[in-house]
Design a protein around this nucleic acid. Sequence first.
DNA 1: TTGTACGCGTTATCAA
DNA 2: TTGATAACGCGTACAA
Lengths: 337, 337
Amino acid sequence: MHRGARATLQDVAREAGVSIKTVSRVVNHERSVSPAMVERVVEVISRLGYQPNELARSLRGNRTRTVGLMIADVSNPFFAECCKAIDEVARSHGYSVILCASAEDAESEREYIGLLTRRRVDGLLLAPAAGGQSHRELDLVAGPAVVAFDRPFEGAETDAVLVTNRDGAREAAEHLVGHRHRRIAFLGDDGRIYTARERLEGYREAMESSGLEAIHRLGTGSIAAAEKATDELLEMQDPPTAFLAGNGLITAGVLRTLDRAGLRVPGDVAVVGFDDFDLMSALSPRLTAVRQPTRELGRRAAELLFDRLEGRDSSPPRHLVLPTELVVRGSCGCDVR
Amino acid sequence: MHRGARATLQDVAREAGVSIKTVSRVVNHERSVSPAMVERVVEVISRLGYQPNELARSLRGNRTRTVGLMIADVSNPFFAECCKAIDEVARSHGYSVILCASAEDAESEREYIGLLTRRRVDGLLLAPAAGGQSHRELDLVAGPAVVAFDRPFEGAETDAVLVTNRDGAREAAEHLVGHRHRRIAFLGDDGRIYTARERLEGYREAMESSGLEAIHRLGTGSIAAAEKATDELLEMQDPPTAFLAGNGLITAGVLRTLDRAGLRVPGDVAVVGFDDFDLMSALSPRLTAVRQPTRELGRRAAELLFDRLEGRDSSPPRHLVLPTELVVRGSCGCDVR
DNA sequence: TTGTACGCGTTATCAA
DNA sequence: TTGATAACGCGTACAA
């Protein structure tokens, strides 16, 4: 395992006694090379362990076959799923993915966008961080092609792939209303995040049309924060009998708190979540949740990007909205088995 | 959002009426530039929106400040956690991460290693795919610095960061023995995977020293496969009364199957898992599990790599083994609250 | 079919 | 303090 000192076209050419261009032809499988020559060059290539320098190619060809992928945090299963789907599509197009985790911080996002620009990624897939719109229009002039997913890209017109956050939340809330709950609480992520606002709005619509009081907390986007908020809600004079959790982490926080408080789900309190993960579906309470088409979200975003990159699509930026689905299991109070 | 046509050192130099090298000096904050000159150049740089081309720098400087990260699958929370930790360390050292998902396939791994080599990554962090050792010695000659994690790198001597798989599994099995179980089953991942073999071995040691029959199934590394295997085990004449699951996905499969079979955990059957995720800890049964120091694993692997890359460590390759810990909750039959 | 020469955008050497 | 020029490794245009 010795670092550096890799063979170059030069080395191969010298060793094979041919010109550098001939080697280049062989490497790129160009037609006009005699079989004998191919054989001779190939032998030297494998003997020297020559590997083309993709940096030089990129510099020359003005494209890197690399895309940037910016998310808040890979360890969030939602983003991990997106990540996986995007990676698969990128690979199938011969692209590599540079992963960036903004931690939901606009300043980090900005730095990463700069980094990716300097690395000359051909495209950028991102779930824009909360509150970052101010810098975006500046930073992406003459930059890579951009497709936003999960959230729209505020600050410039780009393609975006979203889901029906509002409808999903409304439907979930209405489902709880259908179970005769009158004190239904909504816990959501940071209000600067698009999805959190949309889901809150859907919840509100449902409460309003049912004539119920909206009881909500935003900024509870971690397990710990959700636990704290749930605790507070439980201490109300007239505490909620049902909880709508704005994402997977919040769901975990709510459930953990209810468990600690000795409340049974759905016996004492009903719970509906947003996001539905394989791992959780194995455990009880069996969670009723708004399922996002996560894989699809990543896949479509990536495909949109490559349609742009490969010139198959040059229409104006557009938004694609994928449907969510309420998956009914036991935690809402329904008796399904 | 216009692609291509980015400003270069040339452009800035021309616009500022100075030489290209002077601009380069300013960009790189070299000392020997007069303040007046700096001011003049900086103005042009920001006016033209100049961003250094990292490709050209890398080509010239013979290092890319990029590392490859190869795992089986990001959507596995274990790898996602590793990924996150590695990413954090890499960022703090000014490196970017190129993510590769081998899907546990040796041939894909081989291709990705080639890809990363051609992209001239400075280093490679990987959880080697099952059964890939045959190609590795060949592919990494004169390649990047390598650190393996989760599993050793078979086929060449490299640094590796591992955990005490065998001890962890043995301890878990012994715990179940302590609960008076005599029919204890082990479900593990593909036997070609190092961790699966080690955990099986630990389980076997415990069974042997307790004089119990070893009941095990390998190759159950997905939720579906684990469900099938669990079903089969339950149909034995003398079915297991306790299950030791070899990883997080297997745990999910086992629990789901037991639930479907109407068996209560830990009332009817005891379960101990390997891997402990935040999300799962919110649900019931509260899982007793062998906790891996996942974040630490990723962090240490990355730190080892950068110690090598930055010349702080040139000792022979070494293996670092981190301790696992049995986290006792309810699913094993212990009464903890 | 094969080879020569130039340029991609940098940094490094050396001279001015 | 500043600038001209040569690499870095490759692909393209054009010639032979």
